[in-house]
Amino acid sequence: MALPFPAAHPASATDTALSIGLSAVIVAVTGDDPKVLAVRHGGHEQLPSGPLERDHRTLEQGLRNWVERQTHQVLGHVEQLYTFGDRDRRETDGEHAARALSVAYLALVREARPAGDADAAWESWYRYFPWEDWREGRPAVLDAIEPGLRAWAATAPNAGVGSMRAERLSLAFGFGQSRDEERVLERYELLYEAGLVPEGLRERGVELAPGRALLPGVEMAGDHRRMLALAIARLRAKIKYRPVVFELMPPTFTLGQLQRTVEALSGVNLHKQNFRRLIEQQRLVEETGEATSETGGRPARLVRFRREVLLERPAPGVRLPGAGGRR
Rank of each mutant, 00 (worst) to 15 (best):
M1T: 13
A2G: 15
P4S: 12
P4Y: 07
F5P: 00
S12Q: 14
T16F: 09
L22T: 04
A24K: 01
V25I: 04
V27N: 00
T30W: 04
R40P: 00
G43W: 07
L47M: 03
L52E: 07
L59Q: 13
G62K: 00
Q73E: 14
V74L: 13
V78P: 01
L81Q: 09
D88F: 12
R89Y: 10
R89D: 14
R99Y: 05
S102D: 15
L106H: 06
A107G: 12
V109N: 08
R110G: 03
E111T: 05
D117P: 10
A118L: 01
A121P: 03
E123S: 13
R127T: 13
R127C: 11
R127H: 15
R135M: 06
R138K: 10
D143V: 13
D143F: 05
A144F: 10
I145C: 08
G148F: 04
R150N: 07
A151Q: 14
T155Q: 11
P157R: 06
G160R: 12
V161F: 11
A166S: 14
E167T: 10
R168Q: 15
S170D: 15
A172N: 03
Q177S: 12
S178Q: 12
D180E: 13
E182I: 11
L191M: 06
Y192R: 13
Y192D: 09
A194V: 02
P198V: 05
R202C: 09
R202T: 14
R204V: 06
E207F: 10
A209W: 08
A209Q: 13
A209R: 14
G211K: 09
A213C: 08
L215V: 05
G217H: 06
G217F: 02
E219D: 15
M220D: 00
G222E: 11
H224P: 04
R225K: 15
M227R: 11
L228R: 03
L228G: 07
L230V: 06
R234H: 13
K238F: 02
I239V: 15
P243W: 02
V244Y: 10
F246G: 02
P250N: 05
P251N: 12
T254Q: 04
G256D: 10
Q257M: 11
L258Y: 00
L258S: 03
A264C: 01
S266E: 09
L270M: 01
H271F: 05
R277T: 10
E280K: 15
E286W: 06
E287I: 00
E290P: 02
R298W: 01
A300P: 04
A300F: 08
L302K: 05
R304N: 01
V309E: 06
L310C: 11
G317W: 01
G317K: 00
P321G: 01
G322M: 05
A323H: 04
A323R: 08
G324Q: 07
R327D: 14
